[in-house]
Design a protein around this nucleic acid. Structure first.
Lengths: 112, 112
DNA sequence: TCCATATTTCGATATTTATCGAATTGTTGG
DNA sequence: CCAACAATTCGATAAATATCGAAATATGGA
């Protein structure tokens, strides 16, 4: 992941509502969450929520799909892994934990 | 690490010059780097560099100490670990790699 | 003490970001 | 086709952030 992308990802997460939204999306897994549901849960007006989701999407941290009337957002685990990888490599003294510990690509929380 | 602190840390890193500065500080290790050296390396005027270093310090990501005329900044590995831990726990599906892989607390880059 | 060095603080300005109501676009069911 | 629902785009405004020269503060040496 190149520096420019990393900065966009960090900027995207560096905001109260967006961090909260992304956390919810991570919890929700592949299934995702509709924009309106996020707005309601976070107590943010729809237009504002849309703005924030746009930022997350622009940073590549979430994907969106239409499902009937709703637009469902999902966390992009690969992008998050990319970010974590960059931080680990460049901002953590080069210690890497990416080999055996990656962001789960789906909500299948394993036994542990 | 609580959400408010996390957001300040993310905001601090979400900026070209600050991310670059922090990377240099991580590379430099405990020894640290003087403010002026950072300014020169990053090609940023001293007052601007000072502003950015202030942001990093406010976020708790760097510490500073005076050494003669210079002020030396160092990366705070513990803070970075805290951030990584939060992201891993809350934004990565709960997968944790913090047990055996932490940010190195000093520049002692090991054999590998 | 006086001067040069290293950095920060101040102040003014430009840019970016956040907020949110109103209007618009797309979708479904009747 | 029309009414309702879901979400986004638009537009205007408020707030936070970035930039950087000039002035101020601290340090060390002559």
């Amino acid at each position: 992941m190149e520096a420019d992308r990393v900065i966009r990802a960090l900027s995207a997460l560096a905001q109260e509502h967006r961090l909260a939204a992304f956390r919810l999306l991570v919890q929700a897994g592949e299934q995702g969450v509709a924009a309106g549901v996020l707005a309601e849960k976070l107590n943010v007006p729809p237009s504002s929520m849309s703005f924030h989701l746009g930022q997350l999407a622009n940073a590549g941290l979430v994907t969106q799909r239409r499902e009937s009337r709703s637009i469902i957002y999902s966390a992009d685990y690969a992008a998050m892994n990319g970010l974590m990888g960059y931080l680990t490599e460049n901002c953590c003294g080069g210690m890497s934990c990416s080999e055996d510990a990656a962001c789960l690509p789906s909500p299948q929380r394993k036994s542990a």
